[in-house]
Structures are given as C-alpha cells and as structure tokens.
C-alpha cells in the first residue's frame, strides 16, 4: 500500500495505536521523509506519544502533543498547533487517536480538512486477544462507534494481535483467520501485521512492521520465575 500524506491510527483501548504510530513515524523518517506526529489522545494520560519524545527528536520527527502531557496537570485539551498537521501539506502527518469512540471525538474538528485534501489512510488497529474485540463482531461494533464519533471511515486494517510479553510468532499467525474474516466483513484491506522485532523477524511471507516498544512511565518487572 502506498503511503498517504496523512495516516491515522485508531482503535480499541490498549490495541497498540501509540506504539504503531511512533514506529511508523520512525520508519517514514528513515526513508528520508519529513514527518510530523500528533498525539490526539486526550483520554488516557498514562501512556502517550510524548513518552518517546527523545527518540522522535533524534530521528528528526516533529512531535505535537498536549502542552502539559506527562505532568500532573495533564488536561484534556489539544494544542492549536495540531492544525499544522492538516494544513502543511509538505509533511507526512501521523495522528495517534485516543481509544474507542470517546478518544475519536477529538479527531472530529480536523475531519473537514482531512476530507478536503483526500490523501489519507485511517487504520483500524486490531488485537484479537483483547476481550472486547475478541470476536470479529465485537471489533466491528467498536469500528462503527469510532467512525460515527469522528465522522471519518476506516480505510484499512492493521493487525497488532499480541499477548504482551508472551507473544510468539504463533500468537500472530493464529490471528490470521480472525483478521481475514474482519477484512471480509468490513470490505477493508489488510495493510500490515505489526509485532515486536523478535517476533516480527520470524514471520515470513506476510507484510510485517517490526516494532520497538516505547518506554513507559513505569516498567514493572515480572515476578521472577520460582
């Protein structure tokens, strides 16, 4: 699939949107493109694009995020400069949308401009191991809720099916029938699969984006195996 000027990642809470948006931004930048990423997640202040600020900067990527992100006065407000992303057509813009319909409301204000330019993809990030999207119908319900909240329709699907730290290549391949059915029922094409690098490297014959997960505010170790 060709890279559109604007790429929007939306989906269910915890489906992996931010990690995918950040990794995709870095991938585009590494191809020599001028990239700008905007954090439109005003729903969950715990994990956000700004957590990867240093890495994005090091890759020459322009980051737009709420002014007080990652502080104790994190407000559900978007900065005015968010418009730069839709107005400056010389950059590749990436939008990281908040989870579910509630997160997608924030996108509404940009939709007229996005439609007018008509050079965008909006990817539904899917993880079939999440409880509310464990059935294809459950996923479609959330898709439709997001679409009606923001006023924009999805154009493709990204398969980010994973089980966190215990994800294996089989975890991903086991999700293929689900993803096929999701694509068939919605009529949308699969853009790519995504997985952490160690897993992605073992997946052959399918389009995969290998990811490095962003560092979190907290990184709690597992209980050691006894």
């Amino acid at each position: 699939m060709e890279n559109k000027r604007l790429t929007l990642f939306a989906g269910h809470y915890g489906s992996g949107k931010t990690n995918i948006a950040v990794n995709y931004a870095i991938k585009l930048a590494s191809e020599g493109k001028k990239v700008c990423i905007a954090d439109l997640d005003i729903v969950n202040p715990y994990f956000r694009t700004k957590d990867s600020e240093d890495e994005l900067k090091a890759n020459g990527i322009d980051l737009i995020s709420p002014q007080y992100a990652n502080t104790n006065v994190d407000l559900p407000a978007l900065p005015a400069e968010s418009y730069r992303l839709v107005q400056d057509r010389s950059v590749y813009g990436i939008m990281d949308i908040g989870g579910d319909d509630r997160g997608a409301y924030a996108l509404g204000r940009f939709v007229d401009a996005i439609k007018a330019e008509n050079n965008y993809s909006m990817a539904f990030v899917s993880n079939c191991y999440r409880p509310l999207t464990s059935t294809v119908d459950g996923a479609i319900e959330i898709m439709r809720e997001i679409e009606s909240a923001c006023g924009l329709n999805f154009t493709c699907i990204v398969n980010n099916s994973n089980l966190g730290k215990i994800t294996t290549p089989e975890t991903v391949t086991d999700s293929f029938p689900y993803i096929e059915e999701l694509c068939k029922k919605t009529g949308l094409p699969l853009w790519m699969h995504t997985a952490v690098k160690e897993v992605a490297d073992k997946l052959t014959g399918v389009p995969v984006m290998a990811m490095t997960l962003q560092k979190k505010y907290f990184d709690i170790p597992d209980f050691p195996e006894v």
């Binding site: 809470y13 915890g14 993880n127 191991y129 999440r130 409880p131 464990s134 994973n162 089980l163 966190g164 215990i166």
Partner: peptide, 12 residues
C-alpha cells in the same frame, strides 16, 4: 488467554 488491563480484569 486474553490480554487485559488490570482495570478491565476487575470489571470482567
């Protein structure tokens, strides 16, 4: 196995 947030696990 499903992948859940702690908060979702409480609700489920």
């Amino acid at each position: 196995r499903i992948l859940m947030k702690g908060n979702e696990a409480i609700a489920e």
